[in-house]
Simulated assay, not measured.
Amino acid sequence: MQDKNSWLFSPSSLNLSQLFFLLTRRYIFKINYQRFLKLWGMYWRYLVSLVVLLILSATLDNQFGLLDGTAYTSFKPTIVWASIAIVLSLFALVQNKGLPYVFLGYRLSLNNSVWIKFNKILISFFITLSLLNYVVYMFAGLEFWKVYKLFGQTSLLIIFPLFGVWWVYYPYKQTK
Rank of each mutant, 00 (worst) to 15 (best):
M1I: 12
M1P: 09
Q2F: 10
K4Y: 13
N5C: 03
L8Y: 13
L19I: 06
L19N: 08
F20E: 06
T24D: 05
R25T: 04
F29C: 05
K30E: 09
K30G: 02
I31W: 10
L37Y: 01
L39C: 11
G41W: 02
M42A: 01
Y43G: 03
W44H: 03
Y46N: 00
Y46V: 00
V48L: 13
L50M: 08
V52P: 02
V52Y: 02
L53N: 06
I55V: 15
I55Y: 03
T59K: 02
F64W: 14
F64V: 03
L67K: 03
D68S: 12
G69F: 11
T70A: 12
T70I: 14
T73C: 00
S74C: 03
F75C: 02
V80F: 03
A82T: 13
L90P: 02
F91C: 05
V94G: 05
V94K: 14
Q95A: 06
Q95K: 13
L99H: 01
L99K: 02
V102N: 02
G105Q: 07
R107Q: 12
S109D: 14
V114T: 14
V114C: 12
V114N: 06
F118D: 05
F118M: 11
L122W: 05
S124T: 12
F126V: 04
F126N: 09
F126W: 09
T128Y: 13
S130F: 05
N133F: 01
N133V: 05
Y134H: 09
V135M: 13
V136H: 05
V136F: 09
V136W: 07
Y137P: 01
F139S: 10
A140K: 04
G141A: 09
G141I: 07
W145D: 06
W145P: 01
W145H: 12
K146H: 11
K146D: 12
K149A: 08
L150Y: 06
F151W: 13
T154R: 04
F160D: 01
F160K: 02
F160P: 00
F160R: 01
P161A: 03
L162G: 06
L162Y: 10
L162D: 00
G164M: 09
W167L: 12
V168I: 10
Y169D: 12
P171C: 09
Y172G: 04
K173F: 10
K173G: 05
Q174I: 15
